[in-house]
Design a protein around this nucleic acid. Structure first.
Length: 1132
RNA sequence: GGGCGGAUAGCUCAGCGGUAGAGCGUCGCCCUUACAAGGCGAGGGUCACAGGUUCAAUCCCUGUUCCGCCCA
């Protein structure tokens, strides 16, 4: 073991993260073998487009998948995660074209196909490499030995095989059909690549003269320019307004062409517009269908750039929107434009360039989808593939059931060229250009370039210039990456994949197509589960886009970046540049924000928060390592050691954290898993266990120390392994430093923790309840009075429940340092110290003599608030109980619970009122005066200077003093029941009523009711308390009985009178020395501090009045107050 | 036009029949030797609106308003 005692104080992710990835790569840990005894688990990475670098969506993808893969790998699976990239045909071609134009002022046509493709390959290599490096920075444990690209030879041969087979089966065909066409990209698009947007447009009413009549038919259209291609007008057959017109003709304005009037019930909605529809089969999908039904001519009036072609006569050469304008002018001039009215319409734009898409008649390749979709629907219906979140299942079905044939050919250069050839000799040719007329030519489909034309034996064959839709090749990804069409062993092992994890935005584009292809070619679903994650947006919920300038590069978050590299928003936020947050922090953030069915709004404050979490883990580990000495954890079961309550408690809580984390991961509830680990590490392990461990670590008992060390290492080992899938780097770094036998060389190969029943310890959790409650109550009193941590206070705990007293007595070593006590006295209920702060806890009442330490006003305010809260709550419940229907109809246990709660609250209120009463300045009784504190303000000043600092572990041994006049300073050696009883007696005289705490039963109800509202920690307590009544506690009680030291109390009234003197002496002696040594260098002089305190108190009074009143007026904040005390809340 | 989701603390979100929770932010006290990227304490909510079911509704049902997304 190297030197483990010195870790840097702050965690530096940059240094650590850079080291480990290389190490893992070197050891080949990411590699999965095709043959293995382990069960397979396989994810293929959705291949990022090589258009550019990774964005935060990719980072989310990588994070979730790496969590799954690392978790499964640690759980004993043969876990394969296949990396790869996508050639992204149209998108990549566009970015390269843009670059070419910007840098060299050239178009792709200037270069020619071959040279241009060389450029695209250069681009692909550059960005493919960058993407690979980015994944490494993120810590993704991808098996790089299996990396693929969609245009690799292997994948390409899979593409050809699929194309040829589908063609042979008649599922791929070539046809001249109306397709979506981007006039800017000059290519066909599939339905999915068209993005519809609601836009404000117009509905123009245009008059078409009926031939041989004075009548004019008014058509309503949103696209007047297409009238040049009209080949009919349609009316509804039942429309009485137009009876008898069907079969006649109208004269198309501007062109003078005569076109028929047809009756069509499907196309025409008589209620819309004028009830007369112009029919343009070559430029509208509905009209196209109508044209087919009525055998209308399909007149194309636009060219590939959406300019009017020669069919448009006078308008030829005009761009479509210019033509629209001109046509409307001309119609107006002729008096044929009846009116224009505003109209909302949905306009389709090109996914890539946003140009308005034009329906266009052209020869393309199509996949006949229905035979493929049917099995894909059934597979999900039968649950062979499960979609998570389930809500997407319906969306999937809806789309799959309404799917049209898929246009797969693209008029691009970058992509898989279609494996079809045409004979240059016997194919029909276009008149205009002399080129092959692809709409009529017969393709020869073949896996490899054919040598001869089967018709004319010519060897002059030309390959179809078009390429395939990118999604055609990525649709094969789950098996093409595993070697298909070869019968690779990988296929056997890893197909079907276990999980397909991707964004919900590509459910149709990609997931649906993989389902269809997988089922068709592999005869089985491509994956068992589809997990669809949300979209990552900026912190305002806006989509990240370059045009908005709100894109955040994940690598900037991880590695940090100079200000000039950041977008504007970030530059404002980080004028000095973005600090490095580390991959672990980014991953944990993304995992935490992953909530099913919601977009992720990424805020850098969150990332910073989780960076702090990493730092917390670092420092908790640092604490442990600093206190381990030469300790090494051996392999014997931890239960064989003599565990303390704190040990048993944290080990038990750990089991719960393990169980919840595992359950959450199983359910893909990454946010819940992350939150569980966050809470456990911070709110339980750090806030409680580490604090509690200090006693034995700094104490004199070597055996106890070793036990604590063992538990620290044991817990850290589990925490690190649990966290490893989320935060791979820091966990490896720390894990390697833990002094213990490591069964594996790396944490990533270690086993994922499993809950151990033997460590679940309900009794320990129950026993911690009162301890935690007491500490929290005391901290509350301290906090409300703004007492500095250095101020020791004295606490009197009164409990009617003997067991509670025993427990508190036994764990005073926990209580005192954590509550900042100088002295702790635990007794049965008796009289209460006058002038004391008080709180009512489960089965106990705690008093803190004010003694000038506590701010009386603040305490009064605090009690008032507590009382009013309790009253509010009791009022609400009482109203319920007064309703006979409630008592009669509600389940008895609910009624009973409420009754118990009322009882408990009533008791609580009366105790609190009593405490409050005893604080009223004007009601102080003579007796109280006798034992009263000196003038509060004066003694407060004293206190500032002379507060005793108790050493953590050494409290017992040290003489502690307080200012309290009511309580004499005394050392713990001679402390105990005798003197205390005596004081109690004296108080009895003051205030005889005794206020006995309720009987045990009531007390218990009270305890559990309270505990129930206590969040994380107490939740365990509640359930277990009742169950645990029996053996374990009794056992410990017995143990305690045997070790109990003090005999029965004996009265000794004289001691009390002598005490003040003692106190005075003590005050002068030790504390002052300490104060001098410790406080002298401190900057704050006593008066200054005092002033500050006073000011604070003064300030508080008026400022707080309003809110306090408001709180009273408000509904029922009582419950909240109680719940808030849960340590979970305490954490920052 | 159809479908899906959402509206809960200043912000981001859990919860989903027994009168509310977290993180961040805010306020107060503290540089207590694991951590100031920290500790302790506090404040902050008619759970969008209107009806209904129920002994009981933030939660179930219906409707309304607003905000996303998908499909046509």
């Amino acid at each position: 073991m190297s030197d483990t005692t010195e870790l840097p104080k702050a965690y530096d992710p940059k240094e650590v993260e850079a080291r480990w990835y290389a190490h893992w790569m070197e050891r080949n840990y990411f590699r999965a073998e095709a043959t293995s005894d382990k069960p397979p688990f396989c994810i293929v990475l959705p291949p990022p487009n090589v258009t550019g670098s990774l964005h935060l969506g990719h980072a989310l993808t990588a994070t979730i998948q790496d969590i799954l893969i690392r978790w499964k790998r640690m759980s004993g699976f043969n876990a394969l995660w296949v990396p790869g990239t996508d050639h992204a045909g149209i998108a990549t071609q566009m970015v390269v074209e843009r670059e070419l134009k910007e840098k060299e002022k050239k178009s792709r046509h200037d270069l020619g196909r071959e040279k241009f493709l060389e450029r695209v390959w250069e681009w692909k290599n550059k960005y493919g490499n960058r993407i690979r490096e980015q994944h490494k920075v993120l810590g993704a444990s991808l098996d790089w030995s299996r990396e693929r690209f969609t245009m690799d030879p292997g994948v390409s041969s899979a593409v050809r095989e699929v194309f040829v087979r589908l063609h042979e089966e008649g599922l791929i065909y070539r046809a001249q059909k109306l397709i979506n066409w981007c006039p800017s990209c000059h290519t066909a698009l599939s339905d999915l690549e068209v993005e519809h947007e609601e836009k404000q447009g117009s509905l123009w009413h245009i008059q078409y003269p009926v031939k041989g009549s004075d009548r004019k038919l008014t058509v309503a259209t949103t696209r007047p320019e297409t009238m040049l291609g009209d080949t009919a007008v349609a009316i509804h057959p039942d429309d009485e307004r137009y009876q008898g017109l069907a079969g006649q003709f109208v004269v198309l304005p501007l062109t003078g062409r005569e076109i028929p009037i047809i009756a069509d019930a499907e196309l025409v909605d008589p209620a819309f517009g004028t009830g007369v529809v112009k029919v343009t089969p070559a430029h509208d999908f509905n009209d196209y269908q109508t044209g087919l039904r009525h055998h209308l001519p399909m007149l194309n009036v636009l060219d590939e750039a959406a300019r009017i072609n020669k069919e448009g006569g006078a308008y030829a050469g005009m761009e479509r929107f210019a033509a629209r304008k001109k046509i409307l002018e001309d119609l107006t001039a002729q008096g044929l434009l009846e009116k224009e009215e505003p109209h909302k319409l949905s306009v389709g734009g090109c996914q890539r360039c946003a140009t308005v898409v034009e329906p266009r008649l052209s020869p393309q390749w199509f996949v006949k989808i229905e035979p493929l979709a049917k099995p894909a629907i059934e597979a999900v219906e039968q649950g062979r593939t499960k979609i998570i979140p389930e809500t997407w299942t319906n969306t999937y079905f809806h789309w799959m059931r309404n799917i049209h044939d898929w246009t797969i050919s693209r008029q691009l250069w970058w992509g898989h060229q279609i494996p079809a050839w045409y004979c240059a000799d016997c194919s029909p040719r276009l008149e205009a250009t002399g080129g092959i007329d692809y709409s009529r030519a017969e393709p020869i489909v073949s896996r490899a370039a054919p040598e001869k034309c089967p018709k004319c034996d010519s060897s002059r064959l030309e390959q179809d210039p078009d390429v395939l839709d990118t999604w055609f090749s990525s649709g094969l990804w789950p098996f093409s990456t595993l070697g298909w069409p070869e019968q690779a062993p990988e296929l056997k092992t890893f197909y079907p994949n276990s999980v397909m994890e991707t964004g919900h935005d590509i459910l149709f584009f990609w997931v649906a197509r993989m389902m269809m292809f997988g089922l068709h070619f592999m005869k089985d679903v491509p994956f068992r589960t589809v997990y669809l994650h949300a979209m990552v947006r900026d912190e305002k919920g806006e989509k990240m886009s370059k045009t908005k300038g709100n894109v955040i590069d994940p690598l900037d978050i991880v590695l940090g970046a100079p200000a000039e590299q950041l977008n504007k928003n970030l530059r404002n936020k980080f004028p000095q540049g973005m600090p490095a947050h580390g991959a672990d922090a980014l991953r944990f953030t993304l995992a935490s924000l992953t909530q099913q069915g919601r977009d992720i709004k990424l805020s850098l404050d969150r990332v910073a928060g989780y960076k702090a979490f990493a730092n917390k883990l670092w420092n908790a580990s640092r604490f442990a390592l600093m206190n381990l000495g030469d300790f090494t954890l051996d392999n014997r079961p931890i239960t064989e050691r003599e565990l303390t309550l704190a040990d048993r408690w944290i080990l038990s809580r750990l089991q719960r954290a393990i169980a919840v984390t595992r359950t959450s991961l199983d359910a893909y509830a990454f946010g819940e898993a992350a939150s569980t680990l966050y809470q456990f590490l911070w709110s339980e392990f750090c806030d409680w266990y580490i604090e509690l461990s200090k006693g034995s670590l700094y104490g004199e008992d070597p055996k106890a120390r070793d036990t604590t060390r063992a538990v620290l290492v044991y817990c850290l080992d589990r925490i690190l392994r649990l966290l490893h899938p989320f935060m791979p780097f820091i966990t490896e770094e720390i894990w390697q430093k833990l002094p213990m036998a490591r069964p594996t060389d790396s944490i990533m190969l270690a086993s994922y923790p499993e809950p151990e029943a033997s460590l679940e310890d309900a009794a320990a959790e129950a026993e911690m309840g009162p301890v935690i409650a007491a500490i929290e109550g005391l901290r509350n009193i301290r906090g409300e009075s703004n007492l500095p941590p250095s101020a020791r206070i004295t606490a009197y705990v009164q409990s009617a429940d003997e067991r509670t007293r025993e427990l508190l007595e036994r764990w005073r070593g926990y209580l005192m340092p954590l509550a900042g006590l100088g002295e702790l006295r635990i007794t049965a209920p008796g009289s209460k110290p006058a002038q004391s702060a008080a709180f009512v806890g489960p089965q106990m009442e705690v008093f803190v003599p004010l003694a000038g330490l506590i701010d009386v006003d603040a305490e009064r305010e605090r009690l008032t608030k507590e009382i009013s809260r309790s009253e509010q709550e009791v009022g609400g419940i009482q109203r319920k109980l007064d309703n006979p229907n409630f008592v009669a109809k509600a389940p008895p246990d609910v009624v009973e619970k409420d009754r118990a709660r009322v009882e408990e609250l009533t008791a609580r209120i009366s105790k609190l009122r009593d405490s409050l009463k005893r604080l009223e300045p004007d009601t102080s009784t003579p007796a109280a005066t006798e034992t009263a504190a000196p003038e509060p303000t004066a003694s407060k000043a004293d206190a500032e200077g002379e507060v005793v600092k108790a050493e953590a572990g050494a409290v017992e041994a040290e003489a502690v003093e307080t200012e309290a006049g009511a309580v004499e300073a005394k050392s713990f050696e001679d402390e105990d029941d005798e003197e205390f009883e005596e004081i109690g007696e004296e108080f009895d005289e003051d205030d005889g009523d005794g206020h006995a705490i309720g009987d045990t039963e009531a007390g218990e109800a009270q305890a559990s009711a309270r505990a129930e509202r206590k969040g994380v920690i107490a939740r365990g307590v509640v359930k277990t308390q009742a169950e645990s009544e029996a053996s374990p506690v009794r056992a410990s009680a017995e143990k305690k009985a045997s070790t109990k030291k003090a005999p029965a109390p004996k009265p000794e009234s004289a001691a009390k009178k002598a005490a003040p003197a003692q106190k005075a002496a003590a005050k002068k002696a030790a504390p002052v020395k300490k104060a001098a040594a410790k406080k002298a260098p401190a900057k704050k002089a006593a008066p200054a501090k005092k002033a500050a305190v006073k000011k604070a108190a003064a300030k508080k009074a008026p400022a707080k009045k309003a809110p306090a009143k408001k709180a009273v007026a408000r509904k029922a904040p009582a419950k909240k107050a109680a719940a808030k005390k849960a340590p979970a809340k305490a954490q920052r």
